[in-house]
Design a protein around this nucleic acid. Structure first.
Lengths: 218, 218
DNA sequence: ATTTATTTTTAGGTTTGTCTAAACCTATTT
DNA sequence: AAATAGGTTTAGACAAACCTAAAAATAAAT
């Protein structure tokens, strides 16, 4: 089975929405794929006919097992390419999304398995998202927001929610990136800011707004 | 300006046909892009309106300077990706065409310039075809068929016409590939076969059919 | 110079994915 | 229970890229 780029984009978008929300509806999906609700209805009927989504008019919908498998494969391709773009071609992580968005639709199992091997089977993309393996399995991390990490407990930065250039800039200044080991030494109740400790660096203070965008594993 | 995959395929195909034939007509093009003549007419009108081809009904057509520039950029992308697939991912040269056919439509100047740098600015793709640089310039080689190389003259294999698996297999057996240094030690008039000398290897004989597919620079 | 053959174009139709506007459900509020 | 607001579906259209079949133009052969 081979799917059009549009179909793949819908499948992928449903997948991402399902990860974030318990029930997914048509207008959320329309926003995500940048179309109108009417177009979503058309596509849902099509995907339903192909048994990729469970769908009944006016009810919410979810991917079938088959649909999920396809979504995971697209996500796998997207994240592997992002890893390649950053770690081999030297892109910054905030520059790679749109390019990976195109590359993820290239259709060749052999290509992806060789790329995976070339990259030495990475488990996380440059944003800290886990990369599904060829069977669709990926590492499930329980990520905790930086604002909720116990005091003095060592944590490793594993995901940044706001991936804008401004945020990247700020993180660069504080020398924080995916993988950085970090401790909360103090929490200020007044404004929710936190004092952090990173090995070999002087203590620093992050605003609540910044801290809320940083997720860690402990 | 951004072009659809279809438009790009037509432009590229016109380019390749122009390299091989003085006059290009609609049915040749139809064969190349795998459509019918009627569709070619539609597209020629479209490309003419966009000033990418010089075209008047019922006459033969050629790319404009702008069209040529776009074609060279697509060819550049195709050949860089082929180089990547063979030299970084370990594909055989006969496996990469279809994948590069998809990759060549990925739209990012930054991506290609970084890929070029990553590959260290290769000048030839795995088939021996020259790779245009970012300005569309490429090395023009005068290639001579192996059957026409003067006796005892050192030549370097630079292009294989028949790129089938069978041919690849045969060349592997004789340890001939792009870049191999080769001399003709004897030419047999009877069947057009040639005796070749490759450094450190025992003499070998290639049939005329094989020799005709090998091109060299001297 | 006609006739014949080949190639190219036109005309009208299909598919995919999109749109707008109107009709239709569902859920919440009154 | 009815009214209203919000989201969803249908209906009808459109653009891109393709098709077939018929008409028109060019090229080749007599």
């Amino acid at each position: 089975m081979n799917f059009s780029i549009s179909e793949e984009n819908y499948i992928k978008s449903i997948y991402h929405l399902q990860v974030l929300h318990e029930r997914v509806n048509a207008s959320m999906l329309a926003g995500m794929v940048n179309t109108k609700a009417a177009s979503v209805t058309d596509m849902l009927k099509k995907l339903h006919k192909k048994k990729l989504v469970h769908y009944e008019p006016y009810k919410s919908f979810i991917l079938t097992d088959e649909g999920n498998k396809i979504a995971l494969n697209i996500v796998r391709k997207h994240r592997l390419w992002e890893y390649f773009l950053v770690n081999k071609l030297g892109f910054q992580w905030d520059q790679v999304h749109d390019i990976a968005e195109e590359l993820e639709h290239i259709n060749s199992i052999e290509l992806i398995s060789r790329l995976d091997e070339f990259l030495q089977y990475p488990e996380f993309d440059p944003h800290g998202d886990p990369i599904p393996n060829s069977k669709g399995k990926m590492i499930a991390l329980k990520r905790i927001n930086l604002t909720e990490i116990p005091l003095k407990k060592m944590a490793v930065v594993s995901y940044i929610k706001d991936q804008s250039v401004a945020m990247l800039d700020l993180l660069k200044h504080f020398q924080i990136s995916i993988g950085t080991k970090i401790k909360i030494s103090k929490r200020f109740e007044f404004d929710g800011s936190v004092e952090i400790k990173i090995d070999k660096l002087p203590d620093a203070i992050l605003s609540n707004q910044v801290a809320k965008n940083i997720y860690c594993v402990i």
